[in-house]
Amino acid sequence: MNDFILSFENNFITDNRYLYLVQGLGTTLLITLFAAILGILLGFLVAIVRSTYDKTGKLKFVNAICNVYLTVIRGTPAMVQLLIMYYVIFASTSMSKIVVAILSFGINSGAYVAEIVRSGIMSIDNGQFEAGRSLGFSYPETMYYIIMPQAFKNVLPALANEFIVLLKETSICGYIGLMDLTRGGDIIRSRTYEAFMPLIAVAIIYLILVMIMTHFVKLLERRLRSSER
């Protein structure tokens, strides 16, 4: 037991080493939050383009671009995308690493969000479209007032899952020299030559974050469902 306390002190208290974890956590949360926002925006946009094409045959050209985007992003590892983003696309600019990471993860997440949302839109009975259109709502109005609220409710669990994946995936951003939570733990390990304490601490922090997210999604789901027993 004494060993444990000594090890704890050595890894987190000495030289204020816990600050690596705190700062890293901040970076991880910052990247996850903004990448999620970007992912939602991109994903909804692409999903609407794709389902509009599926339903009406319009937007053929934009749909083709979206298809390329989905194929490339879903067909290559997020890690490779991040490295290309940093070492190729933004190599000659002075863009901050955080922004590069946000863009990279946001663009990556957008592809998955797009397919989730599209499946949600396509799962809504076509009669809902027809009812909206026959009342006199335009296509965008029908989407906005009638289809999207229902589709969103249906895909909420899948979307939440995507953001949990996103949170964990940001752990690779140490590869472009960012100090996120994972890298923070790693730095402590390199200082103390002890692996157990810092890595387990990092794992526990991720776990708690995911549990908090899961809890809020459950609350939201229950609230959305109460409107429709």
Binding site: D125, S134, G136
Partner: peptide, 20 residues
Amino acid sequence: LDKYRQKIGMVFQHFNLFPH
């Protein structure tokens, strides 16, 4: 088309009320 459809009421076999 949207203005026109406002003048035409339509009732469907499966009601198609908005469940939300």
